[in-house]
Write a protein that binds this DNA or RNA. Structure first.
Length: 274
DNA sequence: CATGTTTCCTGACAGC
DNA sequence: TGCTGTCAGGAAACAT
């Protein structure tokens, strides 16, 4: 499941490969779920634009686009892609067979295709007619310690639920919430507002550390994640609690426990996390 | 507004 | 072998 480090990896490789290319035409599949705007609107917004850059905002891939208007005018647009659980954004040759569950294809001037494939259809495509997309929350990699602490004031929800709330911090998902909480020694169920300042400081640094390390290793390949070039990530080898139920804690050897919090499998060490 | 619950979807896997 | 049932989970919609 693509979270911040996986989306960062994908956006970086897409940026390398298609930056400067142009979208000549757009094909959209018959399924409506992946489209946040009408097919006509998306197709009209993308067709005939040049890809200025590809970057990540939260868990979203953002294509910054430039459209030519009239003789010498230009307009900025954006193509915003959320991969959901199983979404992939691939750069392919048109000769490659189109896999099942392909929902969108952008044909590029270079002769290649950008394909959006998503079996489970939790992913979403949208467009903006100006450079306006800022994501639902704040970037965890750049937020200050004070701003971080402020996010959790008066929140009675469990800290893990708050970390998954994209309107607070965007980009953190199930893997990195569990891993950050382990590294900072905090139980997932603790009420967010009741964490001490020292605990919040530890969590703030743990999140940045975990995300940066994961980006370096190309993300976590659990289930079938691969980046835009089909490469697997390696951060799953560094997981200390995620999907390690019953296995000994790498610090104290206590078996890792699992329970369900807000509908998500949650993993923690009952001795190291308080 | 804050928080909890339900819904959307398919592939993987267990059990018979 | 092949069928059926269960489950995973991000985020929006809905309920409280």
């Amino acid at each position: 499941m693509p979270e911040l480090p996986e989306v960062e990896t994908i956006a970086q490789s897409l940026n390398k490969r298609v930056r400067g290319d142009a979208i000549e035409s757009v094909w959209l599949g018959r399924h409506r779920e992946p489209l946040k705007s009408s097919a006509r609107e998306i197709s009209a917004a993308l067709t005939g634009t040049r890809i200025v850059q590809v970057r990540r905002v939260g868990k979203h891939i953002v294509f910054d686009l430039e459209a030519r208007i009239g003789q010498n005018g230009t307009a900025l647009r954006q193509w915003i892609v959320h991969l959901g659980m199983t979404g992939r954004m691939l750069v392919c040759s048109p000769e490659e067979a189109t896999p099942k569950h392909t929902h969108a294809i952008a044909s590029l001037a270079s002769g290649r295709e950008l394909r959006f494939v998503d079996p489970r259809r939790f992913g979403r495509l949208s467009v903006a007619m100006k450079e306006s997309f800022a994501g639902p929350g704040t970037e965890p990699l750049t937020i200050s310690c004070d701003d971080f602490a402020k996010l959790f004031r008066r929140r009675r929800t469990p800290i893990k639920a708050a970390l998954l709330n994209q309107k607070l911090l965007h980009g953190i998902g199930n893997i990195y919430a569990d891993e950050s909480l382990f590294r900072s020694g905090i139980r997932p169920k603790r009420q967010a507002a009741r964490l001490t300042r020292a605990e919040l400081d530890a969590l703030h640094s743990a999140i940045k550390e975990v995300l940066k390390e994961a980006i370096k290793l190309g993300g976590s390949s659990v289930s079938d994640y691969v980046d835009a070039e089909g490469r697997e990530g390696f951060f799953q080898l560094q997981h200390r609690v995620y999907l390690r139920t019953g296995q000994p804690c790498l610090v104290c050897k206590t078996p890792i426990k699992r329970f369900v919090l807000g509908g998500r499998g949650t993993h923690y060490c009952p001795k190291c996390q308080r």
